[in-house]
Amino acid sequence: MQPIIEVSDVTMRFNMSRDKVDSLKEYFIRTVKRQLHFDEFFALQNVSFKVWPGDVLGIVGLNGSGKSTLLKLIAGIMRPSKGTIMRTGSISPLIELGAGFSADLTARENVFLNGAVLGYSKQYMAERYDEIISFAELEQFQDVAIKNYSSGMKARLGFSIATITKPEILIVDEILSVGDFLFKEKSEARIKELMGGGTTVLLVSHSLRQIETLCNRVLWLKSGRLIMDGDALEVCRAYEEGSRG
């Protein structure tokens, strides 16, 4: 079997200039004064793993350990400084729900805009429009401008759009915690449904309960290094104990 995602020896280095130089004027002054320093920071170091089709892979780690960075690299939003990432199949990145919502437009218009952001045609979205709205339970608010939505409502709509398209890879970064408990149950059920249909899921969450119930395999990242890769329960246990220690 071919892995659906293959991450080989990936390192992500950020240049963190002590004070950010973002104007020509400052750049010239500093170059002349030789004050142009960059501090290097490694958000990920030599991370390698493979994901198989149908895997539900959880990623755990403390704040700042590089989880979101890793997901962005896989989604193609960033390029790694070193190493390669191979990916096959369509991908629906839920790095943050409702990326690309336009505040001035109505929910209806935003569904089509958001679909287009994910690379889908107008017709494709039109066929699924009713389903999207009914899953998000926003029938009464279809023609309200998004700026008048609550953050939970925006998240519902975003989740509904991203999962309706049945992508081969679904990336979920801490978004299941925005909705109310009813929607949380509903979205977990939706993810399970997608899993049943063979979708590969990458899930980042700070709720270990959620990781344990959904994932068959978990990665533990610590300060940008891959510490452990294995069975969900085992890794969660080790992570909890190891992090307190």
Binding site: A75, G76, I77, P93, E96, A99, G100, V117
Partner: peptide, 9 residues
Amino acid sequence: AELIKKVYI
């Protein structure tokens, strides 16, 4: 910027 940070386009 917000879009570029969250999806590939």
